[in-house]
Design a protein around this nucleic acid. Structure first.
Length: 569
DNA sequence: TGCGGCTATTG
DNA sequence: CACAATAGCCGCAG
Protein backbone atom coordinates (compact mmCIF):
# COMPACT_ATOMS: atom_id res chain seq x y z
CA UNK A 1 0.00 0.00 0.00
CA UNK A 2 2.64 2.48 1.04
CA UNK A 3 4.74 1.86 -2.07
CA UNK A 4 1.92 2.93 -4.33
CA UNK A 5 2.16 6.55 -5.47
CA UNK A 6 -0.46 9.09 -4.45
CA UNK A 7 -1.21 9.85 -8.09
CA UNK A 8 -2.00 6.22 -8.79
CA UNK A 9 -4.17 5.90 -5.71
CA UNK A 10 -6.12 9.04 -6.57
CA UNK A 11 -6.57 8.02 -10.20
CA UNK A 12 -7.81 4.59 -9.17
CA UNK A 13 -10.24 6.34 -6.85
CA UNK A 14 -11.63 8.21 -9.83
CA UNK A 15 -9.97 11.60 -9.28
CA UNK A 16 -9.55 13.53 -12.50
CA UNK A 17 -8.00 16.75 -13.72
CA UNK A 18 -9.59 19.75 -12.01
CA UNK A 19 -11.34 17.80 -9.25
CA UNK A 20 -11.30 19.43 -5.82
CA UNK A 21 -9.08 17.71 -3.25
CA UNK A 22 -8.75 19.01 0.29
CA UNK A 23 -5.14 19.47 1.38
CA UNK A 24 -3.62 20.30 4.75
CA UNK A 25 0.01 20.44 5.75
CA UNK A 26 1.34 20.39 9.29
CA UNK A 27 4.29 22.47 10.53
CA UNK A 28 6.37 19.29 10.63
CA UNK A 29 5.67 18.70 6.92
CA UNK A 30 3.08 15.94 7.27
CA UNK A 31 0.45 16.20 4.55
CA UNK A 32 -3.14 14.99 4.42
CA UNK A 33 -5.29 14.94 1.29
CA UNK A 34 -9.00 14.33 1.09
CA UNK A 35 -10.81 13.79 -2.21
CA UNK A 36 -14.60 13.93 -2.29
CA UNK A 37 -16.21 11.08 -0.41
CA UNK A 38 -18.02 9.93 -3.55
CA UNK A 39 -14.76 9.26 -5.32
CA UNK A 40 -14.23 6.03 -3.41
CA UNK A 41 -11.27 6.85 -1.21
CA UNK A 42 -11.43 6.56 2.56
CA UNK A 43 -13.86 9.12 3.90
CA UNK A 44 -11.22 10.40 6.27
CA UNK A 45 -8.70 11.14 3.54
CA UNK A 46 -5.17 9.83 3.59
CA UNK A 47 -1.74 10.76 4.82
CA UNK A 48 1.00 11.41 2.29
CA UNK A 49 4.06 13.59 1.72
CA UNK A 50 4.74 16.89 -0.03
CA UNK A 51 6.78 15.02 -2.64
CA UNK A 52 3.86 12.74 -3.37
CA UNK A 53 1.60 15.77 -3.80
CA UNK A 54 4.03 17.18 -6.37
CA UNK A 55 4.00 13.90 -8.27
CA UNK A 56 0.22 13.59 -8.16
CA UNK A 57 -0.08 17.20 -9.31
CA UNK A 58 2.00 16.39 -12.37
CA UNK A 59 0.13 13.17 -13.11
CA UNK A 60 -3.43 14.36 -12.61
CA UNK A 61 -3.42 18.12 -11.93
CA UNK A 62 -6.38 18.22 -9.57
CA UNK A 63 -7.41 21.49 -7.92
CA UNK A 64 -5.98 21.36 -4.41
CA UNK A 65 -8.20 22.98 -1.80
CA UNK A 66 -6.32 25.08 0.74
CA UNK A 67 -7.59 27.20 3.61
CA UNK A 68 -5.29 30.11 2.73
CA UNK A 69 -2.02 31.22 1.13
CA UNK A 70 -0.26 29.90 4.22
CA UNK A 71 -0.61 26.36 2.88
CA UNK A 72 1.11 27.35 -0.35
CA UNK A 73 3.94 28.91 1.64
CA UNK A 74 4.38 25.71 3.64
CA UNK A 75 4.37 23.58 0.49
CA UNK A 76 6.99 25.84 -1.08
CA UNK A 77 9.09 25.53 2.07
CA UNK A 78 8.85 21.77 1.58
CA UNK A 79 10.07 22.23 -2.01
CA UNK A 80 6.73 21.72 -3.71
CA UNK A 81 4.78 23.97 -6.09
CA UNK A 82 1.37 22.89 -7.32
CA UNK A 83 -0.39 23.97 -10.48
CA UNK A 84 -3.76 25.14 -9.27
CA UNK A 85 -5.76 25.51 -6.11
CA UNK A 86 -9.08 26.52 -4.60
CA UNK A 87 -8.17 28.97 -1.84
CA UNK A 88 -11.02 29.11 0.67
CA UNK A 89 -9.90 32.49 2.05
CA UNK A 90 -9.56 34.08 -1.39
CA UNK A 91 -12.94 32.78 -2.53
CA UNK A 92 -14.50 33.88 0.75
CA UNK A 93 -13.34 37.44 0.08
CA UNK A 94 -14.72 37.17 -3.43
CA UNK A 95 -18.19 36.01 -2.35
CA UNK A 96 -18.68 37.95 0.87
CA UNK A 97 -16.29 40.91 0.62
CA UNK A 98 -14.31 42.38 3.49
CA UNK A 99 -10.84 41.40 4.58
CA UNK A 100 -11.35 38.81 7.31
CA UNK A 101 -11.20 35.28 5.89
CA UNK A 102 -9.98 32.89 8.57
CA UNK A 103 -11.45 29.37 8.42
CA UNK A 104 -13.90 29.88 11.28
CA UNK A 105 -15.23 33.10 9.75
CA UNK A 106 -15.59 31.61 6.26
CA UNK A 107 -17.22 28.47 7.66
CA UNK A 108 -19.82 30.45 9.63
CA UNK A 109 -20.80 32.31 6.44
CA UNK A 110 -21.18 29.08 4.48
CA UNK A 111 -23.30 27.43 7.17
CA UNK A 112 -25.40 30.53 7.71
CA UNK A 113 -24.41 30.76 11.39
CA UNK A 114 -24.75 34.07 13.28
CA UNK A 115 -21.54 36.01 12.72
CA UNK A 116 -21.56 37.75 16.08
CA UNK A 117 -21.12 34.38 17.77
CA UNK A 118 -18.09 33.11 15.86
CA UNK A 119 -15.89 31.86 18.70
CA UNK A 120 -12.75 33.87 19.32
CA UNK A 121 -9.41 32.16 19.60
CA UNK A 122 -8.62 32.06 23.32
CA UNK A 123 -5.13 30.79 22.66
CA UNK A 124 -5.71 27.51 24.46
CA UNK A 125 -5.11 24.12 22.92
CA UNK A 126 -8.00 22.52 24.72
CA UNK A 127 -8.40 19.87 22.05
CA UNK A 128 -4.88 18.57 22.07
CA UNK A 129 -4.74 14.99 23.28
CA UNK A 130 -2.47 14.25 26.20
CA UNK A 131 0.67 12.95 24.54
CA UNK A 132 1.89 11.37 27.75
CA UNK A 133 -1.26 9.37 28.30
CA UNK A 134 -1.19 5.68 27.42
CA UNK A 135 -4.89 5.84 26.61
CA UNK A 136 -5.65 5.68 22.87
CA UNK A 137 -6.86 9.14 21.89
CA UNK A 138 -9.51 9.93 19.36
CA UNK A 139 -8.90 12.84 17.02
CA UNK A 140 -11.02 15.84 17.92
CA UNK A 141 -13.68 17.05 15.51
CA UNK A 142 -12.95 20.46 13.96
CA UNK A 143 -16.68 21.21 13.95
CA UNK A 144 -18.04 21.87 17.43
CA UNK A 145 -21.48 20.78 18.57
CA UNK A 146 -22.87 24.26 17.86
CA UNK A 147 -21.73 24.06 14.24
CA UNK A 148 -18.87 26.58 14.48
CA UNK A 149 -15.27 25.64 13.77
CA UNK A 150 -13.08 24.95 16.76
CA UNK A 151 -10.62 27.93 16.78
CA UNK A 152 -7.80 25.68 17.91
CA UNK A 153 -7.75 24.06 14.48
CA UNK A 154 -7.10 27.20 12.47
CA UNK A 155 -4.10 27.87 14.67
CA UNK A 156 -2.42 24.56 14.00
CA UNK A 157 -3.08 22.61 17.16
CA UNK A 158 -4.73 19.96 14.97
CA UNK A 159 -1.41 19.15 13.40
CA UNK A 160 -0.37 16.91 16.22
CA UNK A 161 -2.41 13.91 15.12
CA UNK A 162 -2.78 12.46 11.63
CA UNK A 163 -6.50 11.90 12.17
CA UNK A 164 -7.05 15.55 12.93
CA UNK A 165 -4.98 16.62 9.93
CA UNK A 166 -7.08 14.41 7.66
CA UNK A 167 -10.28 15.88 9.06
CA UNK A 168 -8.91 19.38 8.50
CA UNK A 169 -8.12 18.56 4.87
CA UNK A 170 -11.58 17.06 4.33
CA UNK A 171 -13.23 20.09 5.88
CA UNK A 172 -11.38 22.40 3.48
CA UNK A 173 -12.81 20.31 0.65
CA UNK A 174 -16.31 20.61 2.09
CA UNK A 175 -15.94 24.37 2.44
CA UNK A 176 -14.83 24.60 -1.18
CA UNK A 177 -17.80 22.54 -2.37
CA UNK A 178 -20.15 24.91 -0.56
CA UNK A 179 -18.35 27.94 -1.96
CA UNK A 180 -18.60 26.52 -5.45
CA UNK A 181 -22.38 26.78 -5.33
CA UNK A 182 -22.16 30.34 -4.03
CA UNK A 183 -19.72 31.95 -6.49
CA UNK A 184 -21.08 33.91 -9.42
CA UNK A 185 -18.34 32.96 -11.85
CA UNK A 186 -16.26 29.83 -11.29
CA UNK A 187 -13.49 31.15 -13.53
CA UNK A 188 -12.92 34.07 -11.17
CA UNK A 189 -12.78 31.77 -8.14
CA UNK A 190 -10.14 29.73 -9.95
CA UNK A 191 -7.93 32.64 -10.96
CA UNK A 192 -8.27 34.45 -7.61
CA UNK A 193 -7.29 31.22 -5.87
CA UNK A 194 -4.32 30.44 -8.05
CA UNK A 195 -3.19 34.05 -7.68
CA UNK A 196 -2.56 33.12 -4.03
CA UNK A 197 -0.14 30.43 -5.20
CA UNK A 198 1.53 33.07 -7.33
CA UNK A 199 1.74 35.40 -4.34
CA UNK A 200 3.41 32.72 -2.23
CA UNK A 201 5.92 32.15 -5.04
CA UNK A 202 6.61 35.88 -5.48
CA UNK A 203 7.27 36.15 -1.75
CA UNK A 204 9.58 33.15 -1.78
CA UNK A 205 11.53 33.98 -4.95
CA UNK A 206 11.77 37.75 -4.82
CA UNK A 207 12.81 40.27 -7.45
CA UNK A 208 16.34 40.08 -8.94
CA UNK A 209 18.37 43.11 -7.90
CA UNK A 210 22.06 43.81 -8.51
CA UNK A 211 23.36 44.85 -5.11
CA UNK A 212 26.40 46.75 -6.41
CA UNK A 213 24.23 48.77 -8.80
CA UNK A 214 21.76 49.60 -6.06
CA UNK A 215 24.52 50.72 -3.69
CA UNK A 216 26.00 52.95 -6.39
CA UNK A 217 22.62 54.58 -6.96
CA UNK A 218 22.14 55.14 -3.27
CA UNK A 219 25.63 56.61 -2.94
CA UNK A 220 24.80 59.13 -5.67
CA UNK A 221 21.49 60.06 -4.09
CA UNK A 222 22.18 60.07 -0.34
CA UNK A 223 25.91 59.48 0.02
CA UNK A 224 27.87 56.38 0.91
CA UNK A 225 26.73 53.92 3.52
CA UNK A 226 27.37 55.45 6.97
CA UNK A 227 29.86 53.41 8.97
CA UNK A 228 28.34 54.25 12.31
CA UNK A 229 25.27 55.71 13.96
CA UNK A 230 27.29 58.85 14.61
CA UNK A 231 28.31 59.24 10.98
CA UNK A 232 24.68 58.76 9.92
CA UNK A 233 23.76 61.62 12.23
CA UNK A 234 26.43 63.90 10.76
CA UNK A 235 25.30 63.19 7.19
CA UNK A 236 21.71 63.90 8.18
CA UNK A 237 22.62 67.20 9.80
CA UNK A 238 24.65 68.23 6.76
CA UNK A 239 21.67 67.55 4.51
CA UNK A 240 19.42 69.62 6.78
CA UNK A 241 21.92 72.49 6.79
CA UNK A 242 21.73 72.81 3.00
CA UNK A 243 18.12 73.89 3.42
CA UNK A 244 18.37 75.82 6.69
CA UNK A 245 21.09 78.13 5.37
CA UNK A 246 18.42 79.62 3.09
CA UNK A 247 15.96 80.17 5.94
CA UNK A 248 15.59 83.41 7.87
CA UNK A 249 17.87 83.53 10.89
CA UNK A 250 15.90 82.86 14.04
CA UNK A 251 13.69 80.36 12.30
CA UNK A 252 15.47 77.06 12.71
CA UNK A 253 12.86 74.52 11.74
CA UNK A 254 12.59 70.78 12.02
CA UNK A 255 12.31 69.93 8.34
CA UNK A 256 10.44 66.74 9.23
CA UNK A 257 7.65 68.69 10.85
CA UNK A 258 5.13 70.07 8.31
CA UNK A 259 3.92 72.70 10.79
CA UNK A 260 7.43 74.07 11.38
CA UNK A 261 8.22 74.00 7.67
CA UNK A 262 5.11 76.04 6.99
CA UNK A 263 6.18 78.62 9.61
CA UNK A 264 9.69 78.72 8.18
CA UNK A 265 8.38 79.32 4.66
CA UNK A 266 6.01 81.99 5.90
CA UNK A 267 8.90 83.85 7.54
CA UNK A 268 10.65 83.78 4.16
CA UNK A 269 7.61 85.32 2.52
CA UNK A 270 6.21 82.09 1.08
CA UNK A 271 2.63 81.62 2.22
CA UNK A 272 1.03 78.29 1.34
CA UNK A 273 -1.93 76.36 2.76
CA UNK A 274 0.19 73.23 2.97
CA UNK A 275 3.71 72.24 1.97
CA UNK A 276 3.03 69.49 -0.57
CA UNK A 277 5.49 69.27 -3.43
CA UNK A 278 2.98 70.03 -6.19
CA UNK A 279 2.07 73.26 -4.41
CA UNK A 280 5.66 74.34 -3.84
CA UNK A 281 6.92 73.29 -7.28
CA UNK A 282 5.85 76.50 -9.09
CA UNK A 283 7.51 78.64 -6.40
CA UNK A 284 10.91 76.92 -6.58
CA UNK A 285 12.32 79.27 -9.24
CA UNK A 286 11.65 82.33 -7.15
CA UNK A 287 12.87 80.97 -3.83
CA UNK A 288 16.20 79.25 -3.12
CA UNK A 289 14.70 78.03 0.15
CA UNK A 290 11.80 76.27 -1.59
CA UNK A 291 14.15 74.84 -4.17
CA UNK A 292 16.48 73.49 -1.49
CA UNK A 293 13.54 72.11 0.50
CA UNK A 294 12.19 70.17 -2.46
CA UNK A 295 15.61 68.67 -3.17
CA UNK A 296 15.94 67.79 0.53
CA UNK A 297 12.56 66.05 0.45
CA UNK A 298 13.63 63.82 -2.42
CA UNK A 299 16.84 62.76 -0.74
CA UNK A 300 15.18 62.37 2.65
CA UNK A 301 12.53 60.15 1.09
CA UNK A 302 15.18 57.84 -0.34
CA UNK A 303 17.21 57.88 2.86
CA UNK A 304 14.33 56.99 5.17
CA UNK A 305 12.22 54.65 3.05
CA UNK A 306 14.57 53.26 0.38
CA UNK A 307 17.95 53.68 2.02
CA UNK A 308 20.50 51.23 3.34
CA UNK A 309 18.26 49.94 6.11
CA UNK A 310 15.52 49.10 3.58
CA UNK A 311 18.12 47.31 1.50
CA UNK A 312 19.49 45.39 4.48
CA UNK A 313 16.02 44.38 5.62
CA UNK A 314 14.64 43.19 2.29
CA UNK A 315 17.47 42.28 -0.08
CA UNK A 316 18.72 38.73 0.42
CA UNK A 317 22.31 37.63 0.01
CA UNK A 318 21.13 35.91 -3.18
CA UNK A 319 20.31 39.27 -4.75
CA UNK A 320 16.55 38.91 -4.42
CA UNK A 321 14.33 41.65 -3.02
CA UNK A 322 11.54 40.03 -1.03
CA UNK A 323 8.27 41.30 0.39
CA UNK A 324 4.92 39.90 1.40
CA UNK A 325 2.15 39.62 -1.18
CA UNK A 326 -1.62 39.60 -0.91
CA UNK A 327 -3.84 38.42 -3.73
CA UNK A 328 -6.58 40.93 -3.11
CA UNK A 329 -6.68 44.01 -0.93
CA UNK A 330 -9.67 45.06 1.14
CA UNK A 331 -11.18 47.43 -1.41
CA UNK A 332 -11.48 46.45 -5.03
CA UNK A 333 -9.34 43.34 -5.09
CA UNK A 334 -5.98 44.45 -6.45
CA UNK A 335 -2.78 42.68 -5.49
CA UNK A 336 -0.60 44.40 -2.92
CA UNK A 337 3.06 44.00 -2.01
CA UNK A 338 5.20 45.24 0.85
CA UNK A 339 8.92 46.07 1.02
CA UNK A 340 8.43 48.84 -1.53
CA UNK A 341 7.94 46.45 -4.44
CA UNK A 342 4.92 48.41 -5.71
CA UNK A 343 6.20 51.92 -5.22
CA UNK A 344 9.94 51.75 -5.77
CA UNK A 345 11.15 55.12 -7.12
CA UNK A 346 11.79 54.98 -10.86
CA UNK A 347 15.44 55.87 -10.32
CA UNK A 348 16.09 52.73 -8.25
CA UNK A 349 14.50 50.45 -10.83
CA UNK A 350 17.75 50.72 -12.76
CA UNK A 351 19.23 48.29 -10.25
CA UNK A 352 16.57 45.68 -10.99
CA UNK A 353 18.70 43.71 -13.43
CA UNK A 354 18.23 40.22 -14.83
CA UNK A 355 20.60 37.53 -13.58
CA UNK A 356 23.43 36.25 -15.83
CA UNK A 357 22.04 34.32 -18.79
CA UNK A 358 18.60 35.80 -18.22
CA UNK A 359 16.51 38.70 -19.46
CA UNK A 360 13.33 40.38 -18.32
CA UNK A 361 10.26 40.36 -20.50
CA UNK A 362 8.09 43.23 -19.41
CA UNK A 363 4.48 43.64 -20.41
CA UNK A 364 1.95 46.25 -19.43
CA UNK A 365 -1.68 46.51 -20.39
CA UNK A 366 -2.55 49.65 -22.33
CA UNK A 367 -5.48 51.86 -21.26
CA UNK A 368 -6.78 48.98 -19.20
CA UNK A 369 -9.45 50.83 -17.23
CA UNK A 370 -11.45 52.37 -20.11
CA UNK A 371 -11.20 49.05 -21.99
CA UNK A 372 -12.49 47.22 -18.94
CA UNK A 373 -15.32 49.74 -18.68
CA UNK A 374 -16.33 48.94 -22.25
CA UNK A 375 -16.35 45.22 -21.46
CA UNK A 376 -18.15 45.20 -18.12
CA UNK A 377 -20.81 47.71 -19.12
CA UNK A 378 -21.45 46.09 -22.49
CA UNK A 379 -21.34 49.46 -24.26
CA UNK A 380 -21.07 48.61 -27.98
CA UNK A 381 -19.98 52.08 -29.04
CA UNK A 382 -17.17 52.19 -26.47
CA UNK A 383 -16.19 48.64 -27.42
CA UNK A 384 -15.85 49.85 -30.99
CA UNK A 385 -13.39 52.49 -29.81
CA UNK A 386 -11.21 49.83 -28.15
CA UNK A 387 -10.34 48.48 -31.61
CA UNK A 388 -7.94 51.41 -31.89
CA UNK A 389 -4.48 51.11 -30.28
CA UNK A 390 -5.18 54.49 -28.71
CA UNK A 391 -8.86 54.47 -27.85
CA UNK A 392 -8.90 58.16 -26.85
CA UNK A 393 -8.50 59.08 -30.52
CA UNK A 394 -11.86 57.64 -31.68
CA UNK A 395 -13.48 58.78 -28.43
CA UNK A 396 -12.27 62.33 -29.05
CA UNK A 397 -13.53 62.15 -32.62
CA UNK A 398 -16.93 60.95 -31.43
CA UNK A 399 -17.16 63.76 -28.88
CA UNK A 400 -15.77 66.40 -31.21
CA UNK A 401 -12.95 67.27 -28.80
CA UNK A 402 -9.19 66.79 -28.86
CA UNK A 403 -7.51 63.73 -27.38
CA UNK A 404 -6.43 65.26 -24.03
CA UNK A 405 -9.96 66.51 -23.41
CA UNK A 406 -11.41 63.10 -24.24
CA UNK A 407 -9.01 61.43 -21.86
CA UNK A 408 -9.78 63.80 -18.99
CA UNK A 409 -13.52 63.35 -19.57
CA UNK A 410 -13.18 59.55 -19.52
CA UNK A 411 -11.07 59.51 -16.38
CA UNK A 412 -13.40 61.98 -14.68
CA UNK A 413 -16.30 59.63 -15.42
CA UNK A 414 -14.49 56.59 -14.03
CA UNK A 415 -13.16 58.26 -10.89
CA UNK A 416 -15.99 60.67 -10.17
CA UNK A 417 -14.55 64.14 -10.63
CA UNK A 418 -15.35 66.55 -7.83
CA UNK A 419 -14.21 69.86 -9.30
CA UNK A 420 -15.51 71.52 -12.44
CA UNK A 421 -18.38 69.06 -12.73
CA UNK A 422 -17.84 67.94 -16.26
CA UNK A 423 -18.81 70.51 -18.77
CA UNK A 424 -19.59 70.07 -22.45
CA UNK A 425 -17.33 67.04 -22.94
CA UNK A 426 -19.09 65.19 -20.10
CA UNK A 427 -22.51 65.88 -21.61
CA UNK A 428 -21.38 64.56 -24.99
CA UNK A 429 -19.89 61.52 -23.27
CA UNK A 430 -23.30 60.63 -21.82
CA UNK A 431 -24.85 60.92 -25.24
CA UNK A 432 -22.16 58.93 -27.03
CA UNK A 433 -21.69 56.17 -24.46
CA UNK A 434 -24.94 56.00 -22.48
CA UNK A 435 -24.52 52.33 -21.50
CA UNK A 436 -21.05 52.80 -20.01
CA UNK A 437 -21.97 56.04 -18.26
CA UNK A 438 -25.17 54.46 -16.93
CA UNK A 439 -23.16 51.58 -15.51
CA UNK A 440 -20.91 54.01 -13.64
CA UNK A 441 -23.86 56.08 -12.43
CA UNK A 442 -25.60 52.95 -11.11
CA UNK A 443 -22.50 52.03 -9.16
CA UNK A 444 -22.19 55.55 -7.81
CA UNK A 445 -25.84 55.73 -6.76
CA UNK A 446 -25.89 52.29 -5.15
CA UNK A 447 -22.71 53.04 -3.24
CA UNK A 448 -24.09 56.36 -1.99
CA UNK A 449 -27.23 54.56 -0.80
CA UNK A 450 -25.13 52.03 1.07
CA UNK A 451 -26.00 49.12 -1.27
CA UNK A 452 -23.26 46.56 -1.77
CA UNK A 453 -21.81 46.29 -5.28
CA UNK A 454 -20.62 43.34 -7.29
CA UNK A 455 -17.87 43.53 -9.90
CA UNK A 456 -18.08 41.93 -13.32
CA UNK A 457 -16.14 38.93 -12.05
CA UNK A 458 -18.42 38.54 -9.04
CA UNK A 459 -16.50 40.21 -6.22
CA UNK A 460 -18.69 41.75 -3.51
CA UNK A 461 -17.72 45.30 -2.60
CA UNK A 462 -19.25 46.10 0.77
CA UNK A 463 -20.68 49.58 1.29
CA UNK A 464 -21.65 50.97 4.67
CA UNK A 465 -24.78 52.93 5.53
CA UNK A 466 -25.00 56.46 6.86
CA UNK A 467 -22.36 59.17 7.07
CA UNK A 468 -22.07 62.86 6.38
CA UNK A 469 -22.83 64.29 2.93
CA UNK A 470 -19.09 64.46 2.25
CA UNK A 471 -18.67 60.80 3.20
CA UNK A 472 -21.67 59.85 1.06
CA UNK A 473 -20.13 61.62 -1.94
CA UNK A 474 -16.82 59.90 -1.25
CA UNK A 475 -18.61 56.56 -1.17
CA UNK A 476 -20.11 57.29 -4.55
CA UNK A 477 -16.69 57.87 -6.09
CA UNK A 478 -15.32 54.84 -4.28
CA UNK A 479 -18.06 52.56 -5.59
CA UNK A 480 -17.90 53.97 -9.12
CA UNK A 481 -14.18 53.29 -9.24
CA UNK A 482 -14.26 49.94 -7.44
CA UNK A 483 -16.29 48.44 -10.28
CA UNK A 484 -13.61 49.42 -12.78
CA UNK A 485 -10.48 48.92 -10.71
CA UNK A 486 -11.81 45.64 -9.33
CA UNK A 487 -12.71 44.24 -12.73
CA UNK A 488 -9.31 45.29 -14.11
CA UNK A 489 -7.67 43.46 -11.21
CA UNK A 490 -9.66 40.31 -12.02
CA UNK A 491 -8.64 40.42 -15.67
CA UNK A 492 -5.02 41.06 -14.69
CA UNK A 493 -4.89 38.13 -12.27
CA UNK A 494 -6.44 35.78 -14.80
CA UNK A 495 -3.76 36.87 -17.28
CA UNK A 496 -1.04 36.42 -14.67
CA UNK A 497 -2.04 32.90 -13.62
CA UNK A 498 -2.36 31.89 -17.27
CA UNK A 499 1.18 33.11 -17.93
CA UNK A 500 2.33 31.32 -14.78
CA UNK A 501 0.84 28.05 -15.98
CA UNK A 502 2.11 28.32 -19.57
CA UNK A 503 5.50 29.77 -18.74
CA UNK A 504 6.90 26.69 -17.05
CA UNK A 505 8.30 25.09 -20.18
CA UNK A 506 10.21 28.26 -21.03
CA UNK A 507 11.62 28.60 -17.54
CA UNK A 508 9.78 31.92 -17.45
CA UNK A 509 9.09 33.02 -13.89
CA UNK A 510 6.85 35.92 -12.93
CA UNK A 511 8.95 38.05 -10.58
CA UNK A 512 6.66 41.07 -10.26
CA UNK A 513 2.98 41.91 -10.63
CA UNK A 514 2.13 45.61 -10.69
CA UNK A 515 -1.61 46.15 -11.29
CA UNK A 516 -1.31 46.26 -15.08
CA UNK A 517 2.27 45.15 -15.54
CA UNK A 518 3.97 41.74 -15.51
CA UNK A 519 7.71 41.21 -15.24
CA UNK A 520 9.04 37.82 -16.36
CA UNK A 521 12.55 36.55 -15.64
CA UNK A 522 13.50 34.30 -18.53
CA UNK A 523 16.58 32.43 -19.83
CA UNK A 524 17.78 34.72 -22.61
CA UNK A 525 17.39 32.14 -25.35
CA UNK A 526 13.66 31.94 -24.54
CA UNK A 527 12.95 35.67 -24.39
CA UNK A 528 11.36 35.89 -27.84
CA UNK A 529 9.09 32.98 -27.07
CA UNK A 530 8.13 34.62 -23.79
CA UNK A 531 7.06 37.74 -25.70
CA UNK A 532 4.69 35.62 -27.77
CA UNK A 533 3.54 33.80 -24.66
CA UNK A 534 2.49 37.02 -22.96
CA UNK A 535 0.54 38.16 -26.01
CA UNK A 536 -1.09 34.76 -26.54
CA UNK A 537 -2.09 34.50 -22.89
CA UNK A 538 -3.67 37.96 -23.01
CA UNK A 539 -5.73 37.00 -26.04
CA UNK A 540 -6.76 33.76 -24.38
CA UNK A 541 -7.64 35.53 -21.12
CA UNK A 542 -9.65 38.21 -22.89
CA UNK A 543 -11.74 35.54 -24.63
CA UNK A 544 -12.39 33.72 -21.40
CA UNK A 545 -12.96 36.79 -19.26
CA UNK A 546 -15.11 38.83 -21.67
CA UNK A 547 -16.68 36.19 -23.88
CA UNK A 548 -18.49 38.61 -26.18
CA UNK A 549 -15.10 39.39 -27.63
CA UNK A 550 -15.87 42.87 -28.94
CA UNK A 551 -13.39 44.61 -26.63
CA UNK A 552 -9.76 44.68 -27.63
CA UNK A 553 -7.08 44.49 -24.95
CA UNK A 554 -3.52 45.47 -25.78
CA UNK A 555 -0.17 44.99 -24.11
CA UNK A 556 3.13 46.75 -24.62
CA UNK A 557 5.75 44.00 -24.43
CA UNK A 558 9.50 44.44 -24.46
CA UNK A 559 12.66 42.47 -23.71
CA UNK A 560 14.98 44.30 -21.32
CA UNK A 561 18.00 43.70 -19.14
CA UNK A 562 16.97 46.26 -16.55
CA UNK A 563 13.42 46.96 -15.41
CA UNK A 564 13.98 50.66 -16.11
CA UNK A 565 14.68 50.06 -19.80
CA UNK A 566 11.27 50.75 -21.21
CA UNK A 567 11.59 49.66 -24.79
CA UNK A 568 14.92 48.07 -25.47
CA UNK A 569 14.97 45.22 -27.87
C1' DT B 1 2.19 52.98 22.85
C1' DG B 2 -1.36 53.69 19.45
C1' DC B 3 -3.33 56.44 15.97
C1' DG B 4 -4.60 60.28 12.77
C1' DG B 5 -2.42 63.74 9.82
C1' DC B 6 1.02 64.93 6.47
C1' DT B 7 4.08 63.64 2.92
C1' DA B 8 6.06 60.90 -0.90
C1' DT B 9 6.36 57.05 -4.09
C1' DT B 10 3.91 53.98 -7.41
C1' DG B 11 -0.18 52.09 -10.76
C1' DC C 1 -4.81 66.30 -7.95
C1' DA C 2 -10.15 62.37 -8.77
C1' DC C 3 -9.35 56.15 -7.56
C1' DA C 4 -6.07 52.63 -5.15
C1' DA C 5 -1.85 51.04 -2.30
C1' DT C 6 2.73 51.01 1.33
C1' DA C 7 5.51 53.52 4.37
C1' DG C 8 7.99 56.89 7.43
C1' DC C 9 7.86 60.75 10.81
C1' DC C 10 5.47 64.05 13.83
C1' DG C 11 2.29 65.35 17.36
C1' DC C 12 -1.12 64.25 20.50
C1' DA C 13 -4.13 61.38 23.46
C1' DG C 14 -4.18 57.72 26.77
Amino acid sequence: MGDQGLGTRLREAGVRRGDLIGLAIAPDGAVAVAPRASSGTPADGLMTTAGQVAQADEEIRPRWVTWSQETARQLIAAGVRVSTCWDVAAVHRLIYGGWRADPGWAWAHLRGLPLDKVPADNGKDNLIPDLFSSEPTEAPDPVAADGYLEPTFARGGWARTPEALRKWARLAGEAAEMQRSAVERIATAHSESTAELLCAELAADGLPVLLSALEELLADLIGPRPRSEQEAHVIRAARDAEVLKHASPGFPADLRSPVQVKTMLSAAGVDVPDTRAWRLEPLADGSPLVKALLEWRKAERIATTYGYSWLDANLGSDGRLRGGWTGSDGAAGRMTASAGLHNMPAMLRRAVIAEPGHLFVRADLGQIEPRVLAAVSGDRALAQATQNDDMYLPVGQELGVDRPTAKVAMIAAMYGQTTGHGGEAARRMRKAYPVAMGYLDDGDRNARNGNDLRTYGGRLVRMSQGGSPAQVAGRGRYGRNALIQGAAAELFKMWAVTVRARGNDLGAAIVLCLHDELLLHVPEENADQAVRLLADCLAETARRWAPRGDVRFIADISVVRSWSDAKAG
